[in-house]
Protein backbone atom coordinates (compact mmCIF):
# COMPACT_ATOMS: atom_id res chain seq x y z
CA UNK A 1 0.00 0.00 0.00
CA UNK A 2 1.42 3.40 -0.88
CA UNK A 3 1.58 6.38 1.46
CA UNK A 4 -1.40 8.06 -0.19
CA UNK A 5 -3.65 5.03 0.27
CA UNK A 6 -2.44 4.54 3.82
CA UNK A 7 -3.27 8.12 4.79
CA UNK A 8 -6.66 7.83 3.08
CA UNK A 9 -7.34 4.71 5.17
CA UNK A 10 -7.04 6.79 8.34
CA UNK A 11 -9.86 9.14 7.35
CA UNK A 12 -13.51 8.84 8.29
CA UNK A 13 -15.63 7.05 5.70
CA UNK A 14 -17.45 10.25 4.72
CA UNK A 15 -14.22 12.15 4.11
CA UNK A 16 -12.67 9.25 2.19
CA UNK A 17 -15.78 9.04 -0.02
CA UNK A 18 -15.60 12.75 -0.82
CA UNK A 19 -11.88 12.45 -1.44
CA UNK A 20 -12.56 9.76 -4.05
CA UNK A 21 -14.46 12.33 -6.08
CA UNK A 22 -11.55 14.74 -6.20
CA UNK A 23 -8.55 14.39 -8.46
CA UNK A 24 -5.46 14.86 -6.33
CA UNK A 25 -1.78 14.58 -7.00
CA UNK A 26 -0.85 11.54 -4.86
CA UNK A 27 2.68 12.90 -4.41
CA UNK A 28 1.64 16.31 -3.14
CA UNK A 29 1.27 15.90 0.64
CA UNK A 30 0.44 19.58 1.26
CA UNK A 31 -2.43 19.43 -1.16
CA UNK A 32 -3.69 16.24 0.49
CA UNK A 33 -3.55 17.85 3.94
CA UNK A 34 -5.33 21.02 2.83
CA UNK A 35 -8.11 19.16 1.04
CA UNK A 36 -8.65 16.72 3.91
CA UNK A 37 -8.77 19.58 6.43
CA UNK A 38 -11.43 21.27 4.32
CA UNK A 39 -13.45 18.10 3.80
CA UNK A 40 -13.40 17.18 7.47
CA UNK A 41 -14.55 20.64 8.45
CA UNK A 42 -17.43 20.49 5.99
CA UNK A 43 -18.81 17.11 7.09
CA UNK A 44 -22.53 17.68 6.97
CA UNK A 45 -23.95 17.67 10.48
CA UNK A 46 -27.03 15.53 10.96
CA UNK A 47 -28.40 18.08 13.37
CA UNK A 48 -28.85 20.67 10.63
CA UNK A 49 -32.50 19.65 10.36
CA UNK A 50 -33.21 20.51 13.97
CA UNK A 51 -30.99 23.55 14.29
CA UNK A 52 -32.58 26.78 13.23
CA UNK A 53 -29.96 29.21 12.01
CA UNK A 54 -31.80 32.03 13.75
CA UNK A 55 -31.08 30.27 17.05
CA UNK A 56 -29.60 32.47 19.76
CA UNK A 57 -28.31 30.94 23.00
CA UNK A 58 -30.27 31.84 26.13
CA UNK A 59 -28.55 34.72 27.94
CA UNK A 60 -27.19 34.27 31.41
CA UNK A 61 -28.94 36.15 34.22
CA UNK A 62 -27.67 39.66 34.80
CA UNK A 63 -25.95 40.18 38.12
CA UNK A 64 -28.20 42.17 40.43
Amino acid sequence: MNDYEERKGELSMATAKKLDQIELNPKNKDQFDRVVKFLEATELPNIVKSVDHTYKPTPRAKKK
Binding site: F38, E40, A41, E43, L44, P45, N46, I47, V48, S50
Partner: peptide, 28 residues
Protein backbone atom coordinates in the same frame (compact mmCIF):
# COMPACT_ATOMS: atom_id res chain seq x y z
CA UNK B 1 -38.11 14.52 18.18
CA UNK B 2 -34.77 16.13 19.01
CA UNK B 3 -33.18 13.35 16.85
CA UNK B 4 -31.73 11.27 19.67
CA UNK B 5 -31.49 7.57 18.86
CA UNK B 6 -31.49 4.59 21.21
CA UNK B 7 -27.99 3.12 21.28
CA UNK B 8 -28.42 0.64 24.12
CA UNK B 9 -31.50 -1.09 25.48
CA UNK B 10 -31.42 -2.13 29.09
CA UNK B 11 -33.70 -2.52 32.12
CA UNK B 12 -34.98 -0.13 33.47
CA UNK B 13 -33.10 2.49 31.44
CA UNK B 14 -32.36 2.85 27.74
CA UNK B 15 -29.34 4.82 26.62
CA UNK B 16 -30.02 7.45 23.94
CA UNK B 17 -27.55 9.62 22.07
CA UNK B 18 -27.44 12.48 19.61
CA UNK B 19 -24.52 12.87 17.27
CA UNK B 20 -22.87 16.26 17.60
CA UNK B 21 -21.52 17.46 14.33
CA UNK B 22 -18.52 19.74 14.05
CA UNK B 23 -19.04 23.31 12.93
CA UNK B 24 -18.99 23.92 9.21
CA UNK B 25 -16.24 26.05 7.68
CA UNK B 26 -18.72 28.92 7.24
CA UNK B 27 -19.69 28.78 10.92
CA UNK B 28 -16.08 28.68 12.06
Amino acid sequence: KMEFVTIEEDEPYNKMALRIAPYTVEEL
